[in-house]
């Protein structure tokens, strides 16, 4: 098994991912500015903020799609720690155990639902196929590994209620199902942290409720920490243990949902954006208060 980075800082046991002074510049634009926060084991952490606040950029830095301009990202897997900014994008999933979904769904549309989940198990299957050579020669070890992979995929399909659509192309699924499939696909990589970029966007209320249940079960049953970008305040308030608020690339608040809800800076950030969102936040605050 791969060893972690020896010079990574030692984190407290309950901290899974520590983001420190993360800054990302695009030319003159500072999309993320000296942001620090922790993702703790067994928690759902929500990352919120108005559009363009830099949330997706934080995700892209954590998952290796962007190299941070400044900052240290440490992942603590217990026995080993990784400095994420030193890993290449595909290593982040494989070695550090961080999985993600995308704001605009990125499924393999021309492949079946089942195939999508098998691609996510590429690394173990690749090993079982003897880096392909043994697989071409039909060694039995691979068939066994593939059966196990299919079983795992079936398990996830049952959990997201898509078992009947396993053999359909992913692009044929309705939008809400695609969202859940993308989450299942990410989970099939056996992550320790699951990063979800606006998973509830475009879902109807019942789909949204299903999603909440799924995320809770991922936290409880799989013991996977969730880092969640979300606009829907009801989702955030309901399921998250811990909320981080960004505005114009800066961290303006970090605490429990109750704390964040009362924070005047957060309210101002939403007030300063656009009326629709303001009203929504105000309504939500009222609802909570009453």
């Amino acid at each position: 098994m791969s060893r972690g980075h020896p010079d990574a800082p030692t984190l407290p046991d309950d901290v899974l991912l520590r983001v420190e002074r993360l800054t990302m510049r695009f030319g003159g634009l500072v999309a993320v500015n000296a942001v620090s926060f922790d993702v703790r084991r067994g928690e759902i952490t929500a990352l919120i903020g108005p559009n363009g606040a830099g949330k997706t950029t934080v995700f892209n830095c954590i998952t290796g799609f962007y190299k941070p301009t400044v900052g240290r990202l440490t992942l603590n897997r217990g026995d080993q720690s990784f400095l994420l900014e030193r890993l290449r994008d595909h290593e982040i999933s494989r070695r550090a155990g961080i999985a993600r979904t995308f704001q605009n769904i990125r499924l393999f549309g021309g492949m079946t639902v089942l195939e999508n989940l098998l691609v996510a198990q590429h690394a173990p299957l690749m090993k079982a196929s003897g880096m392909t050579v043994l697989g071409v020669l039909r060694f039995p070890g691979f068939a066994k590994a593939e059966r196990a992979a299919i079983e795992k995929a079936k398990g996830w399909l049952e959990r997201i209620g898509l078992i009947d659509r396993a053999d359909d192309p992913a692009a044929d699924l309705p939008y809400g199902d695609q969202r859940r499939l993308e989450i299942a696909r990410a989970m099939c990589t056996d992550p320790v942290v699951l990063c979800l970029d606006e998973p509830a966007a475009g879902l109807n209320p019942s789909e949204s409720a299903d999603l909440n249940a799924l995320l809770r079960s991922i936290r409880a049953e799989d013991g996977v920490a969730v880092l969640l970008i979300e606009h829907d305040m009801s989702v955030v308030m309901e399921i998250s243990d811990h909320v981080v608020v960004l505005d114009y690339g800066r961290l303006i608040c970090d605490g429990t949902p109750a704390l964040v809800r009362e924070d005047p800076k957060v309210i101002a950030a939403y007030l300063g954006v656009d009326d629709e969102e303001v009203e929504q936040v105000e309504r939500e605050i009222e609802e909570r208060a009453s």
């Binding site: 990125r106 393999f108 691609v119």
Partner: peptide
């Protein structure tokens, strides 16, 4: 085999492949 599925997945969406 996984390699072949990875090829087709790559053809479908390279970024998603890297995230996996």
């Amino acid at each position: 085999l996984p390699i072949g599925r990875a090829w087709e997945a790559l053809r479908e969406d390279e970024i998603a492949c890297r995230s996996l």
